[in-house]
Design a protein around this nucleic acid. Structure first.
Lengths: 406, 406
DNA sequence: GTAGCGGATGAATCTCCCT
DNA sequence: CAGGGAGATTCATCCGCTA
C-alpha cells in the first residue's frame, strides 16, 4: 500500500514536471542542461526529498527543490510576536512566553523581507494548481497576506481557527485572543484546477457547506509532545485536527505536502496518516529528532477511512448580550423577579443595572437576594406582549433560531 | 437628557483640546495663529461637525477636523477598486520589482495609497488615547492591517465577525466566506489609556471575558434600508448589533465616534442610541439622505442602559492606614490569610508586621508567600464579631461611608 | 473504580499613578 | 521620563492525587 502510493505520486510528478516547461517561472540558469535531463534530475531531487526532513535554512532547502513539484504547502512561519517583559497570571505564576530566537525580527521591514523570500521560494516549488495555507496571528498575518497578494498568489479564503480553550487575557485590557487566521491561496489568479474536496467536506459537515470559521481545541494532553523533563518540545505545536482539515480539504491521497517550517512535524504526521507524502524543512536538531520519532510511529489510515473529521458539537452557550443584540430583549427595558420585588434595567452591553450597580444577570440576581449565587436565566423575567415571561424561554427561542454557533 | 450629555462632552472636548498643544502631532502650518485662538477655532470646528454628516471626499473632511478631537473611529472602507473613482493614478516608484501582472499590482498600489491617506487623516483626528476599528474582508484587510502597523497604529485585537447566515458559496470551489475581520487598534503602542469597558462586557457575557470572535446575523429584514423600489439602499449595510458591541466596548457616553465611510449611517444611528456623538463623512447624496432620516428616527436609550460603570481599577484608592485611623481595624490586632498559615500584626501607621519585618499589606503578603506580588486587600483577613472577614470587605464599607474624601 | 479537588498551562504585542 | 509601588487580573482542559 505504501509503495503503491509512492508509485502513484511518482507518475503524477512526472506528468507535472513535463508540464513545467510551459510555466512562466523565471529560471536562474538560462543555458543549463537540456530539458530532458533537467526533468530527470528534478525527479531524482524530488524523490530524495519525499517523506524527508530537509535539514537547514528553509529558504535554501526550498530553492533546492525542483520547480513545480509540490501539490500543497502548509506553512506556520514565525509570528514576530514582539513580546516585551513578562506576563503573570492572577495567581502570580508566570506565562511561558514564546521567546525563542527564531521569532525575533529587528523590524517590520526585516520580517517583510524574510516573508517575501520564503514565499517566493515556496511559490517556485508549487505546481501550477497547487495551493498554500499560511497560519498566523494579528502580529504577522496582515503582512503575510499583503505580501502574498504582491507576489501574485490569489487568496481563495481567509479561515479562522477559533480556539475552544485559548489562554485568557489576564489584565482585562483587550478581547481574549481566541483565534488564529489561516490564509488559503492558489499560486496565481488564473489557477482554476486546484484541489478542493467540496463534496467530502460537505458530507462530513452534516451536509452543510464547509465554512471559513473552524473550531478546534488547542494542542494539549497526550498529543502535545514533551521532552524528558516534561516540558513542551515546541512552543507552538498545532493540533492535528487543524492540519487534517486543511490537508483533507485541499489535497488528494498521494499528493506531496510541503511544510517550510516543519517544527515537530505535525504536518508530516497528519500527511502520512492521511496517505499523502510530505516534505519538511527544519533547522533545529531537537525539533527534527522529535518529528522523526513522531512520524515513524504514525500508521497510515486505510484509504477508505480517509474522511473529513468533524469537530465535536459543543453545547451552545448563550450570552445574555446575544439576546439584547438580537433585539429579543430591548436595551433600556426592565427585568423583574417572579414576585416583582426587584427591577433591573437591561443595558445595551448585556449587563443589567440595579440602581447604580452594574453586573451580569446572575451576579445582580444574587446581590438582590443577598445570596452567594443565582441563576439569572431562571430568576429574571421580562414583559412581552403584556405578559411576564422568563428570560430562559427567550434563551431557548434564541438557541432555536441561531443555528451554527458553537 | 440629550442636552446634558452634549454639555458633558463639550467639557471633555475642551479639556482634551487644551492638551493638544502637548501632542507631538506635526502641524501643517508652522506659523499659524496662536495656540489659544487655535484651540478656540478647534472647538468651534468640532462643535460644527458634531452629530453631522460631512458631505464630500472623506480625506478632505478628515483633514478639516481639529487634531486630537475624536474618541473612537469606526471605518468600513471600500475594497472594490473599480468602483473607487477617487483613487489617484499609480506611482511607479512604489512598485516592487516582482514578476507580476502590472495592472493588478497597480490596483494594489492605488488601494494602498488610498488606505494610507485616509488612515493618516483619521489618525490625526484621533485623541492620543482614541482607538479605531476597521472592518474588511480578505480582499483588503491584509493591506489595511499592514499599513496600520506601518503608520504607527498598535493593533489591540483582530476580531472576527462570524455570520449566522452568510451567503452560500454557490460553485463549491471554496469554503463559504462566513466571516469578516475587524482590526481594533490604538493610535500608538504607548497609548495605554484607551477605553475598554471590560467589566460591563464580561457581565453581559455570562461573567466570561469577551473573546475576539463575535457572532451576529447579517443585516436583513426591517433593519435593512430599502429604497422606494424595494431595493437595498446600500450594498454593504452592517448590522447595528455589530456596531453596538464595538461602540459599547471602546467608548463612553458623550464620546465622539467618527465614521469616515458613513454610508447609510449605521454608526451614527447606533452612536445616537447609545448616547455617543457621531461625525460621519459621506459623499453620496442618496446615502446621506437615507442616513439623515434614519438617525432622526432614533431615540437615545436612557442613561442607565448605557452608562459606564466605574471599573475596580478606577475606584477611589483607599490607604490601609485609613481603615486603622477610622477604627475599623484596631491597631495591634492581627490579620491572617484564608488558611491561617501566616499572621501579621496591624501597626498604628497602617503598615503590618510579620515578626520583625514591617511593610505594606501587599509587600508582606508577597513576602510571606514567596511571590513577587500580592494584593493584600484580598489576601488578608481579620476577625470581626468572632468571624473571619476579608479586609477588602472593610475597604468596601469604608468607601461607602466616606464618599466625600478625595 | 471513581468522583472530586487542586495544580498546571496555553503563539500574549495584557496597569496605572505618583514621585 | 524613568522607576517604584499599589493593586487588579483568568478560562478551558488535562493530570494527578485523595477520599
Amino acid at each position: 500500500m505504501r509503495i503503491q502510493r509512492a508509485g502513484a505520486a511518482g507518475s503524477r510528478v512526472q506528468k507535472l514536471v513535463s508540464r513545467t516547461g510551459l510555466q512562466p517561472v523565471p529560471r536562474p540558469g538560462a543555458f543549463g542542461p537540456s530539458a530532458a535531463s533537467r526533468d530527470e534530475a528534478s525527479q531524482e531531487k524530488l524523490a530524495a526529498a519525499l517523506d524527508q526532513i530537509l535539514v537547514g535554512d528553509c529558504i535554501d532547502s526550498l530553492r533546492g527543490l525542483p520547480e513545480a513539484s509540490v501539490d500543497l504547502v502548509f506553512a506556520d512561519p514565525p509570528y514576530n510576536l514582539q513580546l516585551e517583559g513578562g506576563l503573570t497570571r492572577p495567581d502570580q505564576s508566570e506565562v511561558d512566553a514564546v521567546d525563542d530566537d527564531w521569532d525575533k525580527f529587528a523590524s517590520f521591514a526585516d520580517y517583510d523581507r524574510f516573508t517575501r523570500d520564503w514565499l517566493t521560494a515556496a511559490r517556485r516549488a508549487m505546481k501550477p494548481d497547487a495551493t498554500l495555507f499560511v497560519i498566523g496571528s494579528y502580529h504577522n498575518i496582515f503582512r503575510v497576506g499583503a505580501i502574498l497578494q504582491d507576489l501574485g498568489f490569489w487568496i481563495l479564503n481567509d479561515i479562522v481557527w477559533r480556539k475552544a480553550n485559548p489562554m485568557p487575557n489576564f489584565r482585562g485590557r483587550r478581547f481574549t485572543n481566541a483565534h488564529e487566521t489561516l490564509i488559503w491561496a492558489s499560486r496565481s489568479a488564473n489557477a482554476k484546477g486546484y484541489t478542493f474536496n467540496y463534496d467530502a467536506l460537505k458530507a462530513g459537515n452534516e451536509d452543510c457547506q464547509p465554512r471559513s470559521d473552524w473550531f478546534f481545541p488547542i494542542c494539549t494532553g497526550a498529543e502535545r509532545l514533551k521532552d524528558d523533563n516534561g516540558r513542551k518540545t515546541h512552543p507552538t505545536q498545532k493540533p492535528e485536527a487543524l492540519l487534517a482539515r486543511a490537508i483533507m480539504a485541499a489535497s488528494k491521497p498521494g499528493d506531496v505536502v510541503l511544510d517550510p517550517f516543519f517544527g515537530t512535524g505535525t504536518t508530516g504526521a497528519v500527511a502520512k496518516r492521511l496517505g499523502r507524502h510530505f516534505i519538511g524543512c527544519e533547522r533545529d536538531p531537537d525539533y527534527i529528532r522529535a518529528a522523526r520519532a513522531r512520524i515513524a510511529a504514525v500508521e497510515p489510515l486505510p484509504g477508505a477511512a480517509v474522511h473529513t473529521p468533524v469537530a465535536k458539537r459543543q453545547e451552545k452557550r448563550v450570552a445574555f448580550a446575544s439576546l439584547v443584540e438580537a433585539g429579543m430583549i430591548a436595551a433600556g427595558s426592565e427585568l423583574h423577579d417572579e414576585k416583582k420585588r426587584w427591577r433591573v434595567v437591561v443595558r445595551a452591553d448585556g449587563a443589567v443595572a440595579l440602581g447604580d450597580i452594574v453586573g451580569s444577570i446572575h451576579k445582580i440576581g444574587a446581590l438582590a437576594q443577598g445570596l452567594p449565587a443565582c441563576n439569572g436565566w431562571t430568576f429574571w423575567r421580562c414583559v412581552e406582549g403584556g405578559k411576564s415571561i422568563c428570560i430562559d424561554d427567550l434563551r431557548a427561542r434564541y438557541r432555536a433560531t441561531a443555528p451554527g454557533e458553537d
